[in-house]
Computed example of a mutant assay.
Amino acid sequence: MGNDSSTGGYLLPAAGGPSFDNALDDAIQQAVVGITGLPGSLVRPRWQPIVAKQPPIDTDWCAIGVTDTEPDDYPVQDQTATGSDLIEHETITVLATMYGPQAAANAKALRNGLYVAQNREGLLAAGINLTDTGKPIAAMDFVNQQWVRRYDLTIRFRRKTIQNYDILTILSAEADVHTDTHEG
């Protein structure tokens, strides 16, 4: 439970702040599904608490995950009637790895598709915008005594986040002003 600035001590963000993990992952996953046409069940988080079984070698699928988040230094603190908003911009790096017989085509479709404004509408609604993409990098994995096609694509996004802190403001005050006048 957070406190406000009238109590002193450390301040926690007020309830209802941005979701930094699941909402971000969901928005990116939905964009990959929409742009590549891969089924949602085959666009998977890169890191999972319980590792899922890898799809068969002849199945196209994608593993995605945020690999880096770099916030700008010195977020803006904006005083509002409900507290103080801390506004921050950050660069998010995502690694999308395509597997399967159409891995190269899917990596290219994702890269090119992200540059189509309509394809970014869902991301923009979540406060995320494309900065740039790398080029698809070919790699191979040796799994179960066979080579698996793989293409890695690095994507960078920018996002603005706002966290509210309960910092009270002086909206009005009653005061008497006393002055000393000296004649002389």
Rank of each mutant, 00 (worst) to 15 (best):
A14F: 07
G100R: 00
V143M: 07
A103D: 03
Q29F: 01
E70T: 15
L24Q: 06
N112E: 15
T36Q: 01
I64C: 02
L168I: 14
L171K: 11
A103M: 05
N164V: 09
P39R: 04
V148W: 07
F157G: 02
D21K: 12
R150K: 14
E121R: 13
D26N: 07
A109E: 05
G127F: 04
T169Q: 15
R46K: 10
T133F: 00
I92Q: 00
I50Q: 10
T154S: 10
A52D: 12
T91H: 07
N112K: 12
D73V: 11
W61G: 04
P18K: 05
T179A: 13
T154A: 07
L42G: 03
Y99G: 01
A23D: 14
I170A: 13
T69G: 07
K160G: 06
I170P: 07
D176P: 06
K160H: 05
V148A: 03
T7L: 14
N129H: 08
A125E: 15
V32T: 07
I64T: 02
G134N: 02
R46T: 05
D73P: 13
A175F: 12
G134Q: 03
N144E: 13
I35E: 01
Q79A: 14
P45G: 07
Q48I: 03
Q79P: 12
L24S: 03
D78Y: 10
D141P: 08
A175C: 12
T59A: 08
R46N: 09
H182I: 14
M98C: 07
A139Y: 09
D78P: 05
I92H: 00
V148C: 06
D25I: 05
D68G: 02
Y115N: 08
I35M: 04
A125C: 04
P55H: 03
V32L: 04
S19I: 08
Q79E: 15
V116A: 09
I87A: 03
I28H: 00
I87W: 02
Y151S: 02
W47P: 01
P55L: 00
V94Q: 00
K160R: 14
E90M: 14
P136N: 01
Y165N: 05
G122A: 06
G83M: 00
I57R: 11
T82L: 10
N112T: 13
D21C: 11
S5M: 03
I28N: 00
H89G: 08
M98P: 06
T97C: 04
A117H: 09
W147T: 13
R150H: 08
G8Q: 03
G127H: 03
Q30D: 13
I128K: 04
A14R: 11
I92M: 01
Q48K: 06
E88K: 07
G9M: 06
N106Y: 04
